[in-house]
Computed example of a mutant assay.
Amino acid sequence: MIACGQFYLLLLRQDGTVFALGDNEFGQLTGNSESSYDTVVNTGLNYIKIIACGSWHSLALTNTNQIYSWGYNKYGQLGQGDTNNRINTPSLVSFPDVSINSPIKNIVGGRWHSLFLLEDGLIFWCGYGQGTIDDNNQDVKIPTKLPIENVLSVACYYHLNFSLVMDQSLHYYVWGEVRGETLLSPQKLDDKPKSFAAASAMVAESSITYGITSTIYVYESHNWLSFIGLFDNPDNYDVEFIIGDKRILASKCYLKMSLKYFSRMFSGEWMENTKVFIKDYSYDSYYTYLRMLHTGHIRIKQSNIVELIDLANCYDDERLMKHCRTFIRSNLNEHTLSIYLPLIIKYELNDMHDKLVELTIENILPKTANDLRENKENITQFLVWFSEKKSL
């Protein structure tokens, strides 16, 4: 994983070690060393699973649910309760009330602010005027909860003073400095953009997306520059995939090389067929899949995961199935359980067992216990059910 800041970057190795490279004016590389543009600097952080950069400040999330911050801190973006820069070593970020009740899902850095998204859909912020305190626009020096819930994903960028989130209904919200105005609380965007890139283009001062996108998983396959010309090219195709009133153009020869399913499809009686009618999948999902076969890139979202995992299963595409598993594991929580549990059961995703156990013990059972304490009728019904199960 690589995170980019202003004139520097962080690099996360697979073993959880964090390295840095570039400008070190504010200690964003850690240590008292000078800027390093040729040799990576070991930050001393280990067991890290997510890294993020603001303009000149750095963030890291450990696999034990702890956040470290270091670098520039003029606006309190490090969440340390003050405005002192941290130039020597990363410092542990403390949340209000000592602890939080949910694992941390993601961390992101804006120009002079930081955002922390929890698995339960709550989101905290600190730094330059990203919200309100006592009805006033203020910088916040410790992580403070934002007035929005059921958040699935969050995005901001080291060069921007606004932030974006997407909730469970796939609605996008923005707050911060937008087109010369300051939005003190999240405002829902109209027209329901399809990605963070589209949302940022709606609110930025120009059409530049600044690299803000939805999560994109990349397959390390072939060189996409060699094959993109074979995809949906009206000057170079020999088969049409017809979906409703739309069509996708492709090369049978290339598809046969890409996947055994297409090799079987375009053989025998189908060898001379030039049109394939697709009835079980939407145009957008099928287009996304075929494009992945040509580019090695795919964008999986909650809105297309059901169709994509079914495609992976029906077409026996192990690469796509592996990626769908990764997406589900990353986004599985008590709020999305109703969406992903049927998929886990249907496609026998047995590697999700540990995640389901963790979710049940840490989130579902405590709430179930509270419900039982508050309602005597519920406890009676539960014990009857338990007794019947035990007697089987």
Rank of each mutant, 00 (worst) to 15 (best):
C253R: 15
A20Q: 01
W224M: 14
A312G: 12
I123F: 06
H113M: 01
T182I: 01
D232S: 01
K376S: 14
I344F: 08
Y173W: 09
N106I: 05
Y287D: 08
E388G: 12
T288Y: 05
I104V: 05
L21H: 03
I305G: 01
I328W: 04
L115Q: 02
V174I: 03
I300T: 02
S169D: 12
K279L: 08
C253S: 15
Y172E: 05
L255V: 05
V93Y: 03
A204D: 15
S338H: 14
E205F: 10
N375W: 02
V357L: 13
I212D: 09
K355Y: 13
G176V: 00
S91M: 15
Q187T: 08
N106V: 05
W224V: 14
P342D: 04
L259N: 13
N273H: 12
V203W: 01
T380D: 14
I243F: 05
G16K: 01
R325E: 15
Q77T: 02
L293I: 03
E34K: 14
I345W: 11
Y72Q: 12
E269N: 13
R373N: 10
Y157A: 14
T132Q: 00
S285L: 06
H222G: 10
W175D: 00
Q302I: 11
S55E: 08
Q302C: 10
F162E: 02
I48F: 03
N304E: 04
S33V: 09
E34V: 12
F241Y: 06
I142M: 06
V357P: 09
P366A: 00
N370V: 09
I300E: 04
K252Y: 06
Q77C: 12
G22I: 03
R264C: 11
R291I: 06
L332P: 07
G127E: 00
T288R: 08
M202S: 09
W56N: 15
Y289W: 07
G176N: 00
M321V: 04
Y8S: 05
L29Q: 06
V40F: 11
S214C: 11
Y254C: 05
Y210C: 08
T326A: 10
V306Y: 13
T30Q: 07
V306H: 15
L164Q: 03
M321A: 08
N223S: 10
D232I: 00
S206F: 07
